[in-house]
Structure formats: C-alpha cells, structure tokens
Nucleic acid binder design. Structure first.
Length: 591
RNA sequence: UGGGGAUUGGUGUAACGGUAGCACGAGUGGCUCUGAACCACUUAGUCUAGGUUCGAAUCCUAGAUCCCCAGCCA
C-alpha cells in the first residue's frame, strides 16, 4: 500500500494562482507513476500521436493529442507525431499537411520545445519491418498463405470452430522465397499474404493467424512506388512504437483485444534475442505498453471519418473545414480557441467508460475563454431603424468605449453616435409582455455606453409591420448614466446608421438535431439540422471593419464571432462561434 | 450461445475497506451599463440480489444492462 500522504493528488494545470488546487490522477497517470516508481523504462515517458492521414483530425483526436502531449509535459518526457501511413489506398498528402497544421495549432509541440520527440512516418520503417518479418519466417512464426480474402473469411471459423489454412505448414525457406517475390512484385494484388502463425483456435479472432503483409500495387504518398507490399496495422504499430522508444502507447478501447497481438509480435521478435546483443538474432527490441482509453464523444455530432468524408463529398457541408464540422480545422474556423479545446479535453477526464460529453460543455469552454480574451464590439444582426427626434440632423458624437470590461488593459475605442441608429429587431416590442426590459412605447432604455432614450412612437408599413421606431434622447445621460441617479431596466446595443458597415454574418447552429445522429433511423443524415447555417446582412460599428481573418470578438449581447478567411479588406465576414447564454430567451420560450 | 471491456446525481468525473466529494448543468436569490460575466445558496447519485466485515462504491458470488471483436482498414 502507498503511504499515508495522498500520492494521487497533483497540482492541477491552470496557472500559479491555482497551484493550491489539486485533482486526482487519471488511470493512465497512475500507471505511469507506478512504472516510474518501479524504474520501468528507466523512468522515461515517451508518448506519441499516430494518426492515419486519411482524413482531417476532429475533436476526438484533440483529446488524444492533449492526453499524449500532456503526459509528456507532466512527466518531463517526449512527444512524437507519427503518421501511421500503412494503407496507401486511403491516404493523401493533403491530410498529412492538415494534420501537421492542426496538431501544431492545438499545442502538440512535436518539433520544438522541451518535449519535442519529432515527426515520423511509419513508412520510413518499412525496410526494418520487412527485415523483422523475414526473421519471424525463419523462426517459424510466419508463413506465406495463398488463400484469397474470401477464402480466409470462409475459413475464419466460429467461436467454437477453429480457422484453417492449408499453407500453415509451408516450410520456412519456401515462405521466405515467396515473401521475397511478393516484395519484388512477382505476385498480383490479393494473391498472397504473410500470416503470423499464432493460434487458429483462439477465442480472440485477432490471434487466428492474422495477416502481416498484403500485396498492394499502389503508389504511396510518402514512399512513392518503392513498395508493393504493405504491413497491416497490428504488425506495424508495435514496431513503430518500439523503434521510436515509446514507453506508453495510448490508443482507444476498440484495440483492447488487439493488445495480445501487439505483445505477441514484439515477444516473437525478441525470442532468441539477448539483452547484450550476443547470439544469432541480436539485441532485444524495446517493448512499449499499450493502454486503452475511451474516446471523446460529444452529443449532436458524428465523428467517424467515413461519415465526415461523406458529408464533404455530398456537399452537405462546404469542406473539411466548414465551421459546422467537428474537425479541428472547422472548429478553428468557427472561432473555437485551442485553449478552450484543451480545457474541454482536460475537464472531462480520461477513463475507460464510454460516455457522451454534452456538446454544451465544449460551448461553455469557449465562452469561458473568449469572455476573458475577446474584445467587445457592437453589431446588429436584424436591424430596426430608430430615429432620435430631438437629436440635430447631421450632428455626430464620438464616444469612448471600453474594449473589454474583463480586461482593463485592452483600452478603449471610438464609436460614433448620430440621429439615425439601428437596433436589434428583438429589442423592440410594441406590446411587450411582463419583464420585457427592452424598448417599447413609453419605455426608457439605455443605449449601451451612450445615452438614455425613450420611445415615443412607431412608423408602420401598409401591412402593419413596424418599420421605424421614434425616440427622444436625454442629452444629460451622455456616457450612459443619468446625473439625477435615475435607473433604467434595460440596456440594448446599437449602431449609427450613417457610420455602420454592412457585412455578411454567418450564424451557425449545431449540425444535427439529435443527440446521437442516426440512432432513430440508422442514417445520420436524417438528423441534419436544416437551419445549421443562416446568413444575414449585419451592420457593424466602424471599428470592426478592420477585422482580419482569425480576429475574434464578442458582439455585445449576441455572442462570439470570428472573422472568416472569406473576408475582404474592410469587409470582414463573421462566423458566429457561439451565442451568449440567454436566460431571457429561455424564459420567454417557456411561456 | 465465444472473447474483450464498462456500469457512482441530469452530464462528466473522484474515492483504491473508514464522513460518497468536485466540475458542468439546472433552480433560487444577489450584483450589474451585456437578461452575459461574477457571487451565494439549493438540487440530485453508488445497476440488481445475496454474502464477507465492526464498517463495502470498493472484497466475494450470482445476475442485469450497454459497448467492442470473425477487413488482405486503422
């Protein structure tokens, strides 16, 4: 038993002012600390993130990146980015590039800084893997099988009935010859495989003589046409980890029953090898430890690359980086910050329990971060004209506004005020219900940071719609406070009509209406939210027109918005990241 | 009907035989020039049934429910 002081308590991340806080170790950290206490791997910690470059990274990968990099950071270890590029049929350079971009953006420092372990490609190890494979053949632990994929499938057996292969006892020298011919391109796709001789009767089907190599005459994004045989995941993955000196190989739950295979391959290579390298087979290779954890699964989204790819191909979204996509590129474009994503990943913890994470949790993480970090601005999404009857025509007042009340260092900005303004259509009601604190006939409200105004009447069109609101302004309230100390219940945002800039605002909502898309009908596309994107012509205060792609703001009372890559100089396009919490809408909707 | 995992408030997570705690949400109140933020309080939980023990979320037995596995994908 560990001693009385709680070894499970560690300082939580979050800065020196929070150093007093502690959180418990997750199960992986407990394993690592036990390993270090026992002197395993010489106390080293070396992790890796091993994506296959067959799609863009999504928020589930973000969890894995944060976990792996976080462990390297916490234990003073190293972190590798490694492309698990063993299947050229699905892999592309575009994906390689996007993955490097996304891992870097998220803060996975694989190529610089104290924890950088490097950038690797599994395909760079193909020669070494091939040599190991020949070794297993010579040791009688692998054989070349001539069964077709179909035949293998038919002979797979059942839990009770073992699998079969007529080639299992092919002599080693014959397998060796055929394996070399496979490499030399003398055999067509699918004709031969190299299989591990493990256990055709194993209740774990992964051990029923799994395929190690298949023939595939397909150019590879990284190795070109050098190879026409490619290693399978189970054979390759442990070797990649071993060659890189990975200590803790962290993967997801579905690989749990591959772990015996992971270990079998490394032990098979080490059989006959020695610690000092003496003997016919040489020195033992490093044996990392595979550990599995549960995926990050948010509600209201799909994460499988197959499903994401389908939406891209069918044009359901505009690309892998569409701001509605759960991809890291999409979330970034939407306005999510790396900090918010990292925090969300840490907050939900790491376990083996397959749970759903409320999407609102991720939304709250970005609200929290942006509330502290984002400069404020005013924009009107659905404009309603307001005329101040007692404000002189042509006269402009220039007011100083706080850039961010949460951050005094952010300073102030200038905002023009004049006779004709626009306010949000939702902020006016001709016949308001109780507790409507906004503008209505006879009601006085504050225009944010500016003046008190009182509604004196409305102008309507032939159909009876309000097209204009008439108000009087109290000049003594300049700056937003009344010298006589009188209070108003409501404060609303506004822009000056003569100075506002009209821009495109893209109002994003969740992509799916169901917590688990596809659960109802079996087809996730049946649960698409038809209003996941609404585009409006918004009016913004002039200072905001200078926004450049990537600039993020809080539009007061509306939400957080990020200038999109589609922006033109002086004409930004804004993506709504997330709305502000809106208890009024919730209360009003409940009636 | 084989094998591998999992099960603690609404959600996520802690506890490692000794007071079931934390976060998020939700509710109420306060504060407020954002119906935001912030502050305070409240809410609500050990899958079931037995057993061991002075004492069980934790150990044992039996069961229930859910997830993964029979690609030459990863």
């Amino acid at each position: 038993m560990p001693d009385a002081s709680r070894p499970n308590a560690v300082p939580a991340p979050g800065g020196p002012d929070k150093a007093a806080e502690t959180r418990s170790l997750n199960f992986i950290e407990q394993i690592i600390e036990a390993d270090r206490a026992a002197g395993k791997h010489g106390g080293r910690v070396h992790t890796r993130f091993p994506p296959e470059p067959n799609g863009y990274l999504h928020i589930g990968h973000a969890k894995s990146i944060c976990l792996n990099f976080g462990l390297a950071e916490r234990y003073g270890g190293k972190f590798n980015l490694r492309f698990d590029d063993t299947n050229p049929e699905k892999e592309e350079q575009e994906y390689v590039d996007s993955i490097i971009r996304d891992v870097t953006w998220l803060g996975g420092r694989f190529d610089s800084g104290p924890h950088a372990g490097g950038l690797y490609y599994a395909s760079d190890y193909f020669e070494q893997m091939y040599a190991f494979a020949e070794e297993l053949i010579r040791k009688g632990k692998a054989y070349v099988c001539a069964l077709t994929a179909d035949e293998v499938s038919k002979r797979r057996g059942t839990p009770q009935i073992p699998a079969t292969s007529p080639f299992r006892d092919r002599p080693a020298d014959e397998s060796l010859r055929l394996f070399r011919e496979m490499r030399e391109g003398k055999h067509p796709d699918g004709s031969l495989t190299l299989r591990a001789r493990i256990d055709l009767a194993s209740p774990n089907f992964n051990l029923r003589d799994p395929v190690m190599y298949r023939v595939l005459h397909e150019p590879h994004q990284h190795t070109g046409d050098k190879w026409c045989i490619y290693p399978m995941y189970d054979w390759a993955h442990g070797l990649e980890d071993s060659l890189e000196g990975i200590t803790h190989s962290i993967c997801t739950l579905e690989f749990e029953d591959h772990r015996p295979l992971y270990d079998w391959f490394i032990r098979a290579i080490n059989e006959g090898r020695t610690d000092d390298g003496s003997g016919p087979w040489g020195r033992k290779i490093h044996h990392p430890q595979q550990i599995e954890f549960a995926k990050f699964r948010p509600t209201y989204t799909v994460l499988s690359k197959r499903n994401l790819l389908k939406m891209v191909q069918q044009g359901v979204v505009k690309g892998w980086d569409d701001p509605r996509m759960p991809t890291i590129s999409g979330l970034r474009r939407r306005g999510y910050t790396a900090e918010a994503l990292r925090r969300a990943c840490t907050e939900v913890g790491t376990t083996k329990v397959e749970s759903f994470i409320d999407l609102t949790r991720i939304e709250n993480a970005v609200r929290d971060h942006l509330n502290k970090a984002a400069p404020r601005g005013m924009a009107v999404l659905r404009p309603l004209k307001v005329v101040l009857e007692n404000w002189p025509e042509g006269q402009t007042d220039e007011l100083d506004f706080v850039v961010n009340p949460e951050d005094p260092a952010a300073g102030t900005r200038k905002v023009p005020f004049s006779r004709v303004l626009y306010i949000e259509r939702d902020d006016f009601m001709e016949n308001p219900p109780k507790k409507f604190f906004r503008l209505a006939p006879g009601v006085e409200v504050r225009l944010r940071w500016a003046y008190f105004v009182t509604c004196t009447g409305v102008v309507k069109d032939a159909a009876g719609n309000v097209t204009e609101v008439r108000c009087t302004v109290d000049p003594a309230t300049r700056g937003g406070d009344a010298p006589d100390g009188r209070k108003v219940k409501g404060t609303i945002h506004w822009v000056s009509a003569a100075h506002a800039v009209e821009v495109e605002a893209r109002l994003y909502d969740r992509l799916f209406n169901a917590e688990q898309p596809g659960k109802r009908t079996g087809n996730y596309l049946d649960d698409l939210n038809p209003t996941s994107l609404e585009t409006v012509r918004a009016l913004i205060e002039p200072a905001l027109a200078a926004a450049k792609p990537g600039d993020t703001f809080q539009f007061e009372r509306l939400g957080y918005f990020r200038a999109d890559e589609d922006s033109q100089p002086g004409r930004p396009v804004f993506n709504r990241t997330v709305t502000l919490r809106d208890t009024w809408a919730k209360a009003a909707g409940a009636d």
